[in-house]
């Protein structure tokens, strides 16, 4: 498949997947051909009335042959599993990157927010040779973001965040699309994935209309929704301080721990789901008050609080 004009592979990861695909196809192809050749040879040699010998098989043969190919198949398959699982595990490590793009899927479009706050619809611009992390959520049904050129996809779920990360290497314009059936115009949920040289990207990004970046927008919302009334450091209400919250292990009221990731914080805002140990459950929930985009901004602000602290402690 390498060099297949419709499937450019534009990252090291994609090339590695292609190699795996080709090797596995060759392996399974060999197994298939083995079966087909045997069937054809037997069909000709042992056609009814042919002179070939039908002498009885020795008794031991049946069992030994059977055990032989069972074990051989088992080990072949286990080997393939081991090989693929190794690749899966190494792909799990998320790169440390501050280049985060927020994606909100809704019937039937992709809303994209660049790290500097620039917004685009049905297009994702990224700089080449940079680790990029996509933080994705859905406004309505389940969608799935598919980047064929990078050989990756991930479902985009309502009510939680999923992530994709990659490092695209070859500049160019490719496609991305929705692969989880999402209703009438599912087939139109398709956009351009543009990889630019870092210089071009910087130029493009400067040319976008000026907007606040997400964290600053979030800081404004933090005050206007009244969050700061309790969560600001000087507040008299007994509410958790949000500095350094993101990414930490939080002890829960009912026992147990949870990692304060995007989904956790989102659930706290909208559903008031988890009560951290040592705090009274007094926070109101904001379901239907705060919309997806505002949650995204608030998240960016809360994350920035942790980044500040890390910076300060260093």
């Amino acid at each position: 498949m390498i060099g297949f004009s419709d499937v450019p592979e534009i990252s090291q990861y994609a090339s590695a997947i292609d190699v795996k695909f080709i090797v596995l196809t060759a392996l399974t192809g060999a197994m298939g051909i083995l079966v087909f050749v045997l069937v054809i040879v037997f069909s000709i040699r042992y056609r009814r009335g042919s002179p070939a010998s039908r002498a009885p098989l020795p008794r031991w043969m049946q069992r030994d042959v059977e055990i032989g190919w069972t074990v051989a198949t088992l080990f072949t398959f286990l080997f393939v599993f081991w090989w693929m699982a190794g690749a899966q595990l190494s792909a799990l490590a998320q790169p440390k990157t501050n280049f985060e793009i927020h994606i909100e899927a809704k019937q039937w479009m992709w809303k994209v927010e660049q790290p500097n706050g620039a917004r685009e619809i049905n297009a994702i611009h990224v700089p080449a040779n940079t680790d990029v992390r996509l933080i994705m959520t859905s406004d309505d049904v389940i969608h799935s973001l598919f980047l064929p050129a990078l050989r990756i996809k991930r479902d985009v779920l309502p009510g939680r965040y999923t992530y994709l990360w990659f490092k695209a290497q070859r500049p160019g314009t490719y496609n991305f699309m929705c692969t989880q059936f999402c209703g009438t115009d599912h087939a139109r949920m398709i956009g351009h994935f543009v990889v630019m040289t870092p210089e071009d990207y910087a130029r493009w990004s400067m040319a976008q209309p000026e907007t606040d970046d997400l964290a600053r927008e979030g800081a404004r919302l933090f005050v206007s929704f009244g969050c700061s009334g309790c969560h600001a450091p000087g507040s008299r209400v007994h509410a958790p301080d949000l500095h350094g919250l993101y990414g930490r292990q939080i002890p829960l009221d009912g026992g147990g721990f949870v990692t304060a990731d995007e989904t956790y914080i989102r659930d706290c805002i909208l559903l008031n789901k988890h009560i951290p140990a040592g705090y009274p459950p007094v926070m109101p929930h904001f379901q239907g008050v705060v919309n997806e985009e505002q949650v995204t901004s608030l998240l960016a602000y809360i994350r920035s609080l942790s980044a500040e602290q890390q910076g300060a402690s260093r």
């Binding site: 009221d253 009912g254 559903l271 789901k273 988890h274 459950p281």
Partner: peptide
């Protein structure tokens, strides 16, 4: 298990 508090 997802919503212990709400279930309580």
């Amino acid at each position: 298990s997802l919503h212990p508090e709400a279930f309580r």
